[in-house]
Write a protein that binds this DNA or RNA. Structure first.
Lengths: 243, 243
DNA sequence: TCACATTTGTCCGTATGTATC
DNA sequence: AGATACATACGGACAAATGTG
């Protein structure tokens, strides 16, 4: 007798909300639904797909967490297609760091090597608008410091702008993820503004080297800057763990 | 009159399931809950936290999607802490690629540069067990090909093993994400086994170079290998888009 | 300013599917 | 095979938030 068991695998093992979320995801992947488009309300979706409202809610929750939609409460609200998937990835990366799947030394050494690659790419692909954005970033950072405020946000943004200027989204995503961890570190430990001033100086020298097309100078300054940052973060971490 | 509006931001804007999931996440971050630990059932959680089952369900859904827990149905089942966050990140990375936030050329050029860094790190940190794992991988791939099967899984695994041998989890996560896209490509397009045989040859030469401590040779072979892979993927993609 | 409609958020009761013992 | 324990799913109801007229 021939074994025909394998022909009769279960047809439906998927949960209802999985089917619903997959259906909506496919509509997004195929371009039928685009960022800004509105989905029907939960009640209408439930009626149209002939499932309970609870299944719709869990499907929407999945899409919300995965960065495919935003949900607004109240009249005129509802689920809206909005692509925040890169932010979702960087959030998860931060979670991975918190779970100690990644150590600080791993993060900073990888960052140094990856950012050197990015900088090399920047020298190949940089445009006038990128230079302008970098200069503007430095200007804003200086203004904050002169007003005795912290320039943490601007200083983190500088490295994202560099990654953007490389014109490669992969580098941008990786840097976005790494800087999410750095931001978390600095904001929890309330770094003082004195060091920030120093940081802006490094940034300025890097931009000048890009303008002057001096790749070796830019790489050297970047390495110096990141090694100092690494030391500073390590000190902060030791203080936390030691106290 | 002084503006004191900013002093009175809403205290509670969080949704109940957000509070619940954050609470459980914190227990995981602080190490109170570890992989393998079981959470109470939905009903018990609802009773203990004094909220409805729906809120518990959506909180558990959030944790499941984010890679913090697995949920087993049936008696003796329930939510179990299980760290699958790296897989979650690589899944999202694949989604980002599908959303065309990343082009194939961006992916493959970034992969080449990052994998060169990884290979350099491997030369610094490689251990006997890594060599053994790489050799074993090649052996299994050859066996599959001799049996006229595809060695796709093994060939993808090879690059993950390389990243692992770099002893840096950041590189491992990035490579895991990139290879998720490559795997998706190849499995959808059913690459033939002839090319796979060629791939194993490249892998073998890389491992030999690692053993012989010839970094420049390893880097050259890797570059050749990845450029060929890039061309092959590009051809496959053009066929899909053109047909 | 205020009432109203819309939509998400939450809870409860109940029934069903599923896995374990 | 039957009992048990659990997630899954449905429907109804009300609360809370939010934009509109």
């Amino acid at each position: 007798m021939t074994d025909t068991n394998h022909l009769f695998v279960p047809i439906k093992n998927l949960r209802t909300f999985d089917e619903v979320s997959t259906k909506i995801k496919d509509l997004i992947f195929t371009g039928v639904l685009k960022p800004g488009d509105r989905l029907p309300s939960e009640v209408k979706l439930a009626q149209q797909l002939n499932v309970g409202r609870q299944s719709i809610r869990e499907a929407l929750r999945l899409l919300e967490i995965s960065g495919f939609i935003n949900i607004q409460r109240g009249g005129g609200g509802g689920p809206v297609i909005k692509d925040t998937i890169i932010k979702t990835i960087s959030d998860l990366f931060l979670d991975a760091f918190r779970l100690k799947k990644i150590s600080l030394i791993e993060l900073t050494t990888a960052r140094l090597e990856i950012e050197k690659i990015i900088l090399k790419q920047v020298f190949k692909n940089v445009e006038e608008s990128d230079i302008h954005a970098l200069k503007d970033n430095i200007k804003k950072a200086r203004q904050r410091i002169q007003g005795n405020e912290m320039a943490m946000a601007e200083n983190i943004q500088f490295h994202k702008l560099l990654a953007k200027a490389s014109k490669n989204h992969v580098y941008f995503m990786v840097m976005e993820s790494i800087m999410a961890v750095v931001r978390d570190f600095l904001s929890r430990l309330a770094a003082d503004i004195n060091t920030s001033s120093n940081v802006v100086g490094y940034h300025e020298r890097i931009v000048e080297a890009i303008i002057d097309q001096k790749e070796d100078v830019a790489l050297r300054v970047l390495e110096e800057h990141l090694l100092e940052t690494q030391n500073r973060l390590q000190t902060l971490m030791d203080q936390v763990n030691g106290g």
